[in-house]
Design a protein around this nucleic acid. Structure first.
Lengths: 164, 164
DNA sequence: TTGAGATTGTTTGGATACGAACAATATGGT
DNA sequence: ACCATATTGTTCGTATCCAAACAATCTCAA
């Protein structure tokens, strides 16, 4: 992620470039590191856990949400996965083509589409999710045990603040 | 981001679905909230700060890195922005078309391309970045002042662990 | 009953995203 | 000087990703 420049070098140049502005560097550091971490973790998962299944990050999340809420309405899947409904349409088509999910129009509301996992989809998730969790443990390991709950809470608070 | 289900409801279903697996739910909560937060913050910035300039999140990050390191080598921009060089090629073409950056081949190394901001690009960043920082402050506000440094450090540690 | 308005999933158009293959350039040893 | 190897940015193919427009369906008041 980081280029050839050290952290201190970057911050020095930033401070120099922005010296005439009144800025909150601590807030800047939080958001900046939030994105670096999220991006690094995501790429790590894609390469080390998902690649062999041919799944993208988003495809996995969609599969996971469907797994939990099956049969799931697409509007809920999109909301839980944090993607637009337009994106979901494409991802579902991909997963359908891979034989992992099925689409079925609701009998009580003709506008709704209900998504379920196929047998293959279920089998895949039962092996994939534990593997995923093992990597989650490794990723979080540099944070002290008694700080992880606090970390999750702070991130939750940020999300709530924006979406509230 | 969250759908029609409450957090407790979701966790109950997850626990039920995964009851026969040995999982680290705290690690799961950290990564899960990491992505929710990053996604929420990114969407917030794109809609409230970047939209009026017609910039995507990535385009802004590329512009920012270039602003700091100008003239910047593309390999460094890609590394700092956390995107592949293939992606950068496309984003730079977009920014060039918008008249915000210029490309120039290095005179000392014919393989390198140096990127600089145009006058318009500089003007844009001088107004955009402070507006960006104001939103960063708002986003981080639900985290106590004396906890923000710790939060940034934990996120940095996670990134370092993966990329180390 | 009927029709205006709301909701839902898909399509469209354009930008982003990556791995792999590629051409151009640079480096190092001989 | 030569050339095998490495590095860099672009191109290609394919998969996301979103906003806006759209067609199908539902709701509910008149």
């Amino acid at each position: 992620m980081t280029g050839s420049h050290t952290l201190g070098e970057t911050e020095a140049r930033v401070a120099n470039r922005l010296s005439h502005m009144t800025l909150d560097f601590e807030a800047m550091a939080v958001t900046s590191n939030l994105f670096r971490a999220a991006s690094a973790v995501r790429n790590h998962f894609e390469r080390n856990v998902l690649a062999e299944s041919g799944l993208s990050w988003t495809a996995f999340v969609v599969l996971w949400v469907t797994w939990i809420w099956e049969p799931a309405e697409t509007r809920d899947i999109a909301a839980e996965a944090g993607i637009s409904k337009a994106t979901l349409t494409g991802v579902l088509s991909t997963l359908e083509k891979m034989g992992l999910v099925t689409r079925a129009r609701s009998t009580t509301d003709g506008r709704l589409v209900l998504v379920s996992l196929t047998k293959d989809g279920q089998t895949l998730m039962e092996t994939l999710f534990p593997a995923f969790n093992r990597q989650e443990i490794a990723v979080v390991s540099p944070v002290a045990d008694d700080k992880r709950g606090e970390l999750a809470d702070m991130l939750r608070a940020i999300t709530a603040k924006i979406e509230g």
